[in-house]
């Protein structure tokens, strides 16, 4: 295997797979997939070093990787909680009571939107529409699973499950 420029073997191979989806000489198209893989691997956030490594691996100036990463909502540049809860507060969700969900989460977790709980378990994010308007209100966990038609009660069930999952995972 060639030099991974400080990237893990697995991130490097994700990038390799993506490079093949694009024409010859268009490796920079793999930058998004590289950022995502590296961020997941790093517990949910990017560091300067990671971006520099991606840049070196793909053959781009570091600033051009940072330009791209900093544009996107899903890129995090500071450590975040084990579970990122992205709560949609856009109009359809708002009409269906997302503020109640937000209030409930803030109260139960003791942090405000945008913050991370002391124990590093949850980060709350107030996000834009995630294309679940017909099942509003909703939230997404770690940019993956959607939880829809939320009520404060179903949020509690979810939180309990995530806490239990984290405990058993340790």
């Amino acid at each position: 295997m060639s030099d991974t420029h400080g990237l893990s073997q697995s991130t490097a191979s994700v990038i390799d797979v993506w490079i093949k989806k694009f024409p010859e000489g268009k490796a920079r198209s793999a930058v998004l997939a590289g950022l995502k893989a590296a961020q997941d691997e790093n517990g949910g956030h990017l560091t300067n070093e990671i971006m520099e490594n991606i840049a070196a691996y793909i053959g781009l100036p570091a600033i051009e990787v940072f330009e791209v990463a900093s544009f996107y909502d899903m890129c995090e540049f500071k450590p975040i909680g084990r579970y990122k809860l992205s709560v949609c507060t856009n109009v359809s969700c708002m009409l269906c009571g997302s503020h109640a969900i937000v209030d409930h989460l803030e109260k139960r977790l003791g942090v405000k939107m945008g913050e991370t709980t002391q124990d590093g378990m949850f980060t709350l994010r107030d996000v834009e529409c995630l294309a679940a308007c017909i099942n509003a209100p909703m939230l997404q966990v770690n940019d993956r699973e959607l939880y829809e038609k939320l009520t404060p009660e179903s949020v509690d069930v979810l939180l309990d499950r995530l806490i239990a999952e984290a405990k058993s995972g340790e």
Partner: peptide, 8 residues
Amino acid sequence: SELGMIDR
């Protein structure tokens, strides 16, 4: 490429 536009 030393300068770039960041954030949005």
